[in-house]
Design a protein around this nucleic acid. Structure first.
Lengths: 343, 343
DNA sequence: GTGAAAGCGCTAACAG
DNA sequence: CTGTTAGCGCTTTCAC
């Protein structure tokens, strides 16, 4: 059973395709098409179960009605939630969302963006980039291609961006640790550390130490590698907790690292927070129930989604690339993983 | 800067569009187009940064190269992981994935499927349905529309399906509880309970009780409502743990319910597993670190993704709806939430 | 108030 | 080996 086209409706009614198109696109009134004719058309469309073919329409208008989202990994709850919100927001505006995961590999992300833009002709891109180089984005900018970065920004490249104040969030978290009585505070970071968010978090942490007169020790920051997070996290934690370094608290740079650190700490049979405190930048539902419940810095994931769509739509409507930043506040959520609250 | 089209390449080279199309679609050899011409064409395409326009191609061929995935909520890690795998698998075959969340509302799912099929012309659909009625799917079937269900199946409707053996998984879990010494075993379920998976889990649980000669008490199964899970879970847990019911262990029907039960139990200041044991159907990374680590039944999420794509592709290639089931095994993961292992 | 006709970029049947 | 042509389904300009 072939699907009904405009032509089918037109022929069935002995009118022109134009007329049908006009009616179905709600342009009938401005063209002064009689109420009666309109009714007839709508009825027939319903009857034949007509739906416009997006590909045909897209080909004609140059609008695909699809927007693209590229993140590192859609199965990370942080991105999954953002994606959920974005999907919802763009759906309200009649758009669909194509989501792709780059797995943190640059070449893959570049390929993905090419595919989305050039083949699928998505009308705009929201991306949590893993790229270090602005080449591809410069090209997009030159073409006035609607683009907004979320979560991570590309250093030295100016574009629309929605993210959180990583520096401040990390500062508050470190400050909380300090006020809770910890002096030797370690950090587990991810390397290679070209991601803007991570850098800002490290800086915030260092700022807090300095502010409270704690001398920073290079051994306090250990990095784990993204591709082998399980093993390297063990090493990092062992190092931090070894007698020579002997950290009292661990600041983890994201949810992924936190989960692995918890595992490593449990493996060492250390108690939290008695033997070592731990906190995490980025909250997960599950951290409420972890052993013990984790103190975290929560990011406003929904707002990130909503705002990114707003910024993108502004560009799509204006048919151009534009720059506008939105830095959202984080929220310190104090639970039990660093002892009781002082203050 | 307009994007290069076939015509641009053809004109630049003084050849026909057909020739260019043939070369770029790797059909040159079977048409015996000279090596030299092919090189020329490819070089020019590269030079002009040519990418085929999917909309034009799709319009012509009737293939959108997009497949659709509909789940209840993409921010649920269970679906997020499946989606990740599906995205990866279809990408290898040159397809893109459009993901939509139905939020467990039937009308929304129906609308979503209509949109995907009729407007976007996705070539096939993978759905974890929330519908109770087969009407829409019967229609799809009649149209020979490629379709595969995952996770949930529609009772009485035969279609391709990939899921796990919920019955057996639940049975094993209940059996584990029984063997661990618990006799009064409660369950927290979700209502309205029209989802096949949940029914099967309840059945498996009841089967185990019967097998071990434990008389089932109706009060042992409490339901929470999907739209107000927070409050209703509290009630359900209170009821189960009240003196009159006095359950010793709680079997939660999915990850969402488990998280809420944990919260409720903590609120009552009950200890796990000393005061009450708890287990969950469906594993989360975080359950490894929950307080205490949860014993769960894990589902092979990756396999579900991989198999569903296989079944779908079979239909897409054959251009027809077809029926084929794949029931995957679950895995009992014993941690600490129901005491030590007896066996 | 309504219709005819062109054309978006591509593929495929057919011709030479 | 290569080119011509038609047409997928839609929107839009222009004409009546």
């Amino acid at each position: 059973m072939k699907r009904a086209s405009l032509k089918d409706i037109a022929e069935a009614l002995n009118v022109s395709k134009t007329l049908v198109s006009l009616v179905l696109n709600n342009k009938a009134d401005e063209w002064g098409i009689s109420e009666e004719t309109q009714k007839k058309v709508r009825k027939k469309a319903e009857e034949l179960n007509y739906y416009p073919n997006q590909m045909a329409r897209g080909l004609r208008t140059g609008k695909s009605n699809i927007i693209g989202l590229v993140v590192a990994d859609i199965s990370n709850p942080f991105y999954a939630k953002i994606s959920r919100t974005i999907e919802f927001e763009v759906a309200r505006l009649g758009y669909h969302l194509l989501v792709c995961s780059s797995d943190e590999v640059e070449e893959k992300e570049i390929k993905l963006i090419e595919l989305l833009r050039d083949r699928q002709r998505v009308e705009g891109l929201i991306v949590a980039t893993t790229q270090q180089n602005a080449e591809q984005f410069n090209q997009l900018k030159k073409q006035q291609y609607p683009l907004v970065f979320i979560d991570r920004k590309l250093p030295g490249f100016s574009a629309s961006y929605v993210g959180v104040d990583n520096n401040k969030g990390a500062y508050q978290m470190a400050e909380h640790l300090i006020k809770s009585g910890f002096k030797k505070i370690g950090m587990v970071n991810i390397s290679p550390m070209h991601l803007s968010t991570l850098n800002e978090r490290v800086d915030g942490y260092k700022d807090a130490l300095k502010k409270y007169g704690i001398k920073f020790n290079n051994d306090w920051v250990q990095s784990v590698s993204y591709n082998d997070i399980g093993n390297t996290t063990n090493e990092a934690v062992n190092k931090l907790l070894s007698p020579s370094v002997g950290v009292e608290a661990i600041f983890t740079v994201n949810n992924y690292v936190a989960i692995n650190c918890l595992q490593a700490i449990h493996k060492l049979k250390k108690r939290i927070p008695q033997d070592v405190a731990i906190v995490c930048f980025d909250d997960l539902d599950a951290f409420n129930f972890s052993h013990p419940p984790l103190t975290t810095v929560a990011q406003p994931v929904e707002d990130i989604g909503v705002e990114s769509v707003k910024l993108l739509m502004k560009q799509i409507d204006g048919k151009k690339f534009s720059v506008s930043e939105k830095i959202l506040p984080t929220k310190l959520i104090i639970r039990e993983s660093c002892g009781s609250v002082v203050a």
